[in-house]
C-alpha cells in the first residue's frame, strides 16, 4: 500500500487559507450587523401628520425673528402692539414686527395678558405680576402656593382669570388681586367633571361675547363656565384624525377670532386648526410640516411643545410663537375660492 503523502496541501496554501480566515473573521467582527426592527416594532404617526392642501385655509404671511432667549408667551395689545415674553424680558414689537422696546422682568413669564385698561398681567409661575401700560412693575398678587403653575391669563373690565395647571383650577380675581372663586374643580353635584391636566398646559380664553372658556386638556376639549363657576357647556373631541385633539392632553393653546371661530394649537402632532362656533372643523391654519413634524422634534430632542403660544390680531391674523426657532409666524386667511 502506498504511503499517504506527507504534504497533501502545500505549506503556502495553508498560509493563504489562514490569512483568508483571519481577514474573514476580522471583516465579520467589524461589520457586524444585526436585524433591523421590522415595521411591527416601529411607531409611525406620519400618515396623521399629512394634511390635504385643500384643508389649509391660511398662508404664512410673515415670519419675524425674535431677539429674545427662550420665548414663552405672546399677546396682542388693543393698540396692535405685539408683546412676546421670554427669558428676563418682554419684547415690544409694532404690528409689522419691528422692535419698539423691551420690558425687563425677572425670570421668564409663562404667560401674559393685557387688561382693557392697558395694564399687563404676567404669570410668574406661582403668582401674577401686574405692570402699568408702560411696563413699570406695580405689584405682585398673592402667591398661589408651591404647586401652582400659572399657564394662562385673561382679563376683562372686572376680572382677571388665571389658569393654574399645578392645582388644576382657574382662579378668578377682581382687578385689585382679591381671589373671588375657583373654577373648574371637580364637583359632581354641579356636573363639573374636573380639569384633567397631565402636563403643564391649561389655557383660559374669552370669546367675543365675553364668555369664559377653559381648555380641559386631559378630556381633549373645551368647557364654558359662568363667572360663578357653573358649567354652561362643553365639547370634547379626542382623536388623532384632523378634526380631533390628539394624544393624552390637547389642545395646549387656543384663542377666539372676532367671528367667534376658535383657533387651537396641539402638541405632539404640531398643528394649528380653526373650528366654527358650532365646533365643526373649518380647516387648518398651520400644518405639522410648517411647524415641525414629530420626527424633526425627536431628532432635535425637543421635549417641550414647539408652539409656545398663539394670539390673534385686529385683522384676525393668527400669530404663532415658535419656541425653538425663536420666531413669530403670522398666518393670514387665504381669499375664499368662489
Amino acid at each position: 500500500m502506498d504511503a499517504i503523502p506527507k504534504h497533501l496541501i502545500p505549506a503556502w496554501l495553508w498560509a493563504v487559507l489562514a490569512v483568508a480566515a483571519m481577514v474573514l473573521a476580522l471583516a465579520l467582527a467589524l461589520t457586524e450587523r444585526r436585524r433591523e426592527p421590522g415595521p411591527a416594532l416601529l411607531y409611525d404617526v406620519s400618515p396623521y401628520e399629512a394634511v390635504d392642501p385643500a384643508k389649509v385655509l391660511f398662508r404664512e404671511a410673515k415670519r419675524i425673528s425674535l431677539n429674545l432667549d427662550a420665548p414663552t408667551a405672546l399677546c396682542v395689545r388693543g393698540d396692535g402692539t405685539i408683546l412676546v415674553a421670554g427669558q428676563d424680558a418682554v419684547l415690544v414689537l409694532d404690528s409689522s414686527g419691528g422692535e419698539k422696546g423691551r420690558i425687563a422682568v425677572e425670570g421668564a413669564p409663562d404667560c401674559l395678558a393685557e387688561g382693557p385698561d392697558g395694564r399687563l398681567y404676567l404669570g410668574m409661575r406661582t403668582r401674577i405680576a401686574v405692570h402699568d401700560p408702560h411696563g413699570t412693575h406695580l405689584q405682585s398678587w398673592q402667591d398661589l402656593g408651591p404647586r401652582a403653575w400659572i399657564t394662562s391669563i385673561v382679563a376683562d373690565e372686572q376680572h382677571v382669570f388665571a389658569a393654574d395647571a399645578g392645582n388644576k383650577v382657574i382662579c378668578r380675581f377682581d382687578i385689585s388681586g382679591n381671589l373671588l372663586n375657583r373654577i373648574g374643580e371637580r364637583d359632581p353635584e354641579r356636573d363639573i367633571p374636573g380639569l384633567v391636566v397631565p402636563s403643564p398646559y391649561i389655557d383660559v380664553l374669552l370669546d367675543p361675547g365675553g364668555g369664559l372658556w377653559v381648555v380641559n386638556p386631559g378630556r381633549l376639549g373645551f368647557e364654558h363656565y359662568r363667572a360663578d363657576g357653573s358649567l354652561a357647556s362643553s365639547w370634547y373631541r379626542p382623536g388623532i384624525e384632523l378634526d380631533g385633539f390628539s394624544g393624552c392632553c390637547n389642545p395646549i393653546h387656543a384663542v377666539f377670532r372676532s367671528d367667534a371661530s376658535l383657533v387651537t394649537v396641539e402638541k405632539g402632532i404640531n398643528r394649528v386648526k380653526v373650528y366654527s362656533p358650532d365646533t365643526t372643523l373649518l380647516g387648518v391654519v398651520a400644518t405639522p410640516e410648517m411647524i415641525g413634524t414629530l420626527a424633526e422634534a425627536a431628532a432635535s430632542f425637543q421635549e417641550e411643545a414647539l408652539v409656545r403660544d398663539v394670539a390673534v390680531d385686529s385683522e384676525d391674523r393668527v400669530l404663532v410663537l415658535h419656541g425653538p426657532r425663536r420666531e413669530l409666524l403670522i398666518f393670514e386667511e387665504r381669499a375664499p375660492k368662489n
Binding site: 411607531y43 386631559g218 381633549l220 379626542p238 388623532i240 390628539s246 394624544g247 393624552c248 392632553c249 405632539g268
Partner: peptide, 19 residues
C-alpha cells in the same frame, strides 16, 4: 411623571377607535 391618562398614547394605537 405619568398623567394616568385615559387616552394613553403609549398604550393605544394612534388611530384606536376605542379606549
Amino acid at each position: 411623571i405619568c398623567g394616568y391618562c385615559d387616552l394613553c398614547s403609549g398604550y393605544l394605537q394612534p388611530g384606536a377607535k376605542a379606549r
